[in-house]
Nucleic acid binder design. Structure first.
Lengths: 243, 243
DNA sequence: GAAAGTATACTGTATATACAACCTTATACA
DNA sequence: TGTATAAGGTTGTATATACAGTATACTTTC
């Protein structure tokens, strides 16, 4: 967990933490490169790299001759909010249930290592859950979790709290990646979801990052006839839409 | 227009150009830092910055002790942004083309009237376009547009400017609704997209509002094998990092 | 008092140098 | 033949140094 971290990453983390904890509000001035040189005992190039990367990542804005400032970040709603499927079903007045079909701890294979931006020897938790609405399977969750980031993951009781909810409570998400595609179900998926071979499925893949590390990678499979993804939101004043 | 460009930017541009022009295919090896030092007469730190930034931007992948390689970039579309499919395809260095399969003006039927929150007598434009990447259909666009909001819609030449781009220029979007589902293609869709009956499709439905009125309702159908929806963003950041 | 000049602080870029970690390949040895 | 070992190339990080460009505050000059 406590890996040897490069110096520039330590500086980045410190600044990000101040922003996340609200110590430095949007618009606030961030220490100059020379001040960071003093307080962290690093070279100016190292401080510069930390500030430059945070700027490229959208957290800061810099003005030559003036200083560095926390960027204004209006809230954005997204198509893919991290919604809790249990709550969602309950909200519709239906009965939620879950069946855990598999759980274990494995070593990362090459594909998983790349997905987690980690090494081959790293350990991952794996869990397969079928989520049901009124007893009918509506979502197949196939999830890998970094054991380094969330060591206590397996101790949880996922019939009472969904993995999504638990992970959100453990590690603040600061980056999300989604891929949505359509596919016909495999034999396993047909069996677990109780659907036919010709029923198309939505497949949503999500990776989430916390403090620069991949926390979890999950594949959610929805039978098309029982589920659709939906979102509706207002765009902010300045507009989140690019052409 | 030829601005004074930093050296690291010149190196970046050169590498990007080779990738965009297809000189360096995905997976191909990129010159090492020391080779760039030689050919560009820069210091290794400058070459390193160029390669590091291109890696952060998703164009390259680097392996310590081995080398730097052009990253594979699968066909993906951003979920959150209203992006122009023509630009998206061009950005991948591929050829974009479009075929208009139908266009006309109709009166709203009950279903459409409800969708547009309008009256039955209201007039709507209808257009069906097949978007192609390197001559292969990748998206079927079935769009209705409010004639009241965008009276000049039909006067446009949609082989040179996509409807999305035109509508964005006409009416600022202040609300968006998305639905994503999976389905098997209808006969018409099979014919228009040139796919088989067993190829599942992603179906994205979008409604957009401007000044309280529905501007357009569109159904986009993507063959699963040729396209996936993609988004990646930082939760505290404004712009989507689509790459 | 206003304009011009000056000092200072800050960011942006570029270089030379150094060392660590990693991977591949060739070589020496058992 | 198989196994260590060494060598060389590659990326990753860190430092010290230098100079350019920009904005602000202060001082001088008219």
């Amino acid at each position: 967990m406590t890996e040897a971290q490069p110096l520039y990453a330590k500086v980045k983390d410190h600044i990000l933490a101040q922003i996340r904890n609200g110590v430095w509000e949007p618009g606030a001035r961030v220490p100059s490169e020379n001040q960071l040189v003093e307080s962290f005992s690093v070279s100016r190039m190292t401080a510069n790299r930390a500030l430059r990367e945070l700027t490229a990542e959208g957290f800061l804005s810099r003005v030559p001759g003036v200083g560095t400032f926390v960027k204004e970040t209006p809230a954005r709603s997204s198509l893919m909010e991290l919604r809790n499927i249990a709550e969602e079903i309950a909200q519709r007045g239906h009965r939620y249930s879950a069946r855990i079909m598999a759980r274990g701890e494995i070593e990362a294979n090459p594909a998983l290592a790349e997905e987690f931006e980690a090494k081959l020897s790293d350990r991952l938790f794996h869990i397969v859950i079928v989520h049901e609405e009124n007893g009918v399977p509506v979502q197949l969750e196939d999830r890998y979790v970094s054991a380094a980031v969330v060591p206590d993951f397996m101790a949880q009781d996922f019939s009472s709290m969904t993995p999504t909810a638990y992970l959100l409570a453990c590690a603040p998400v600061d980056e999300l990646e989604h891929t949505v595609e359509a596919s016909l179900p495999t034999h396993d998926q047909q069996r677990l979801l109780g659907i036919g071979a010709l029923e198309p499925c939505l497949v949503l893949r999500r990776r989430s990052w916390s403090r620069g590390a991949v926390v979890t990678a999950v594949t959610l499979t929805y039978p098309a006839s029982r589920y659709a993804l939906y979102s509706r939101y207002r765009t902010s004043e300045r507009g989140t839409l690019s052409q």
